[in-house]
Design a protein around this nucleic acid. Structure first.
Lengths: 318, 318
DNA sequence: CTGTTAGCGCTTTCAA
DNA sequence: TTGAAAGCGCTAACAG
């Protein structure tokens, strides 16, 4: 760890000025004679100087660290969102540390506790059912919730109703009249309830007979439960998530049943494995960007918490 | 961001001692009367006190931050490794920040540059072909390379030869005599060259006719290239990675060709989608642990850099 | 415009 | 066994 042993004091000496002038240059403050500034900048560059984060952090409040709490490191959709937010944070000089909740409210609690002790600046939290909102209390100003919303907190959500509606319309327009649905239980507000309601609404509106099962979002659940929503007339199946679609697809393949699949989710893996599936992109990538931007703005005090909804976009098979 | 405004000074006042005594308690130093210690600890607990990281960092050297540079956030195998190393770091009070190289040596370079400026303590780097070892120079003592090795650096590698050998033996014992191979180009030292050589060696040793193609590790490459190694007698196919297996599998399914697939890699996704594939677990989870442990030991000066090899383990289909 | 002077919260001599 | 004092590298008044 060949740490740069230089301090602003050294730079000051080397360029024949006082510490404070160097500090001013460092912080891009106005009120430094251009020549002086340039000279100092030259020295800094030439010495490869970099200011001590800890020292700066100690004077200001922030050490410019944010945490991203994903549910699972291997969630395909969350990956897409994280992928777009990381660069945003780096650009603004924030170090993003990653944590995994594994859908456990207790883990979230534990992580938030630790983060509090560490004086972390802000948190991006990928939401899921069961999180105790009271825990978020201390982070009111410095938290962005993803894929879930909560009163008084900033959030970036997907347009669950819109996504399902797009899928259903597409299928309906293709002539499908017996469209089944597989999703998550209604205890899951967004992915579960909202999507299911949207499905029911569409059916009602178009005089279709709903046929649904709500086992959860895991691949195995898709695999095991599809059969329960298949009648002879069923010609299409809407899946609330891409993992579910993966499971369902495997089942259909094995049983030789042919069905038009449609699913919320738009990950490269699924697109490759099953290009025939009609998909709606909930806008994972955009959500990541927005979440990062929102958090940064909040931390800078430029923006109060607000709820953002990402529009869904239909992805037709090739 | 409701920061804990208490300092050791406050704790000192509250417990009627001097700052230094509080500091001693904080660092578990000996030479503090047990009673005093307890009293202070009580106050700290009661006040929910947590020392300022930045202030400590400023006196010592380290701010207890490490970076994990993965190739891709959505790499299934790297995910498994990262998943096991995160808790290790948290336990030791290290904040792990994540970065993505996207297989770009330039990005690695850029990341390392930034990390240097940030005075990060150590780095876990998931290796790939093309990384300029000279760049690692400054990190000689504080870097662990994963899935790749380099002279003079600590590394945790998979047993490429062993993995392929296990796969081949298994197939051979099952009676297969026409086993094809699909892998990465030899320019890729570990996943490419080593695994391919092991395949060739086995063939030679057992009098089999090798038949191989080395397009790369992507799913699409597997999908497109399988056909080139299939003759009529081919009864089994060894894939150098699970993504390749996924691609190959899709092709075989589509063409109705039946073949015993075998692959290096052991991710939940593939296990679910294709339980029939014979797999060898390179030990991703163990590798993660070991890498974290090694890095921590190095940072504590308890362990010089060393090369670790993780043994591969055969996973039979259910 | 620029240097001087205080500290930020903590660790670390050095005395007591 | 403890406290007082001197900084770590930096920023933020306050004087020049």
């Amino acid at each position: 760890m060949p740490h740069n042993k230089l301090t602003i004091k050294d730079i000051a000496r080397l360029s024949g000025v006082g510490k404070s002038t160097v500090s001013r240059v460092l912080n891009n403050e106005s009120g430094v004679k251009p020549e002086t500034r340039e000279r100092i900048e030259a020295v800094m560059r030439q010495q490869g100087f970099s200011p001590s984060r800890s020292a700066r952090a100690m004077r200001g409040q922030s050490d410019k660290v944010v945490a991203i709490i994903v549910t699972r490191l291997d969630s395909l959709s969350e990956n897409l969102a994280v992928q777009t937010m990381l660069p945003r944070f780096y650009d603004q000089g924030y170090d993003p540390i990653m944590m995994e909740s594994q859908f456990s409210p207790a883990r979230v609690e534990e992580h938030l506790r630790v983060l509090q002790l560490r004086h972390i600046d802000g948190v991006i939290l990928f939401g899921f059912t069961g999180i105790n909102e009271a825990l978020l209390q201390p982070w009111r100003q410095s938290l962005v919730l993803l894929a879930r919303d909560a009163d008084g907190y900033a959030s970036v959500c997907y347009d669950d109703e819109g996504a399902i509606h797009l899928l259903m319309s597409q299928l309906y327009n293709q002539g499908h009249r017996h469209i089944s649905y597989i999703g998550a239980p209604e205890s899951d507000t967004t992915t579960g309830q909202r999507r299911f309601l949207a499905y029911q609404a569409f059916c009602l509106q178009h005089g279709l007979a709903p046929r649904a099962t709500l086992p959860g979002l895991a691949m195995t659940q898709g695999y095991q439960q599809v059969s329960s929503v298949l009648s002879e007339q069923t010609s299409a199946l809407v899946c609330a998530s891409d993992t579910l679609a993966l499971g369902a697809s495997k089942y259909l393949q094995e049983t030789g049943r042919s069905l038009q699949l449609a699913s919320v989710g738009n990950t490269p893996l699924v697109k490759f494995l099953h290009p025939e599936i009609i998909m709606v992109d909930p806008g994972y990538a955009l959500a990541g960007q927005q979440a990062a931007a929102q958090l940064i703005a909040q931390l800078n005090g430029q923006q109060p918490p607000r709820q953002i909804v990402i529009p869904a976009a239909l992805q037709l098979p090739d």
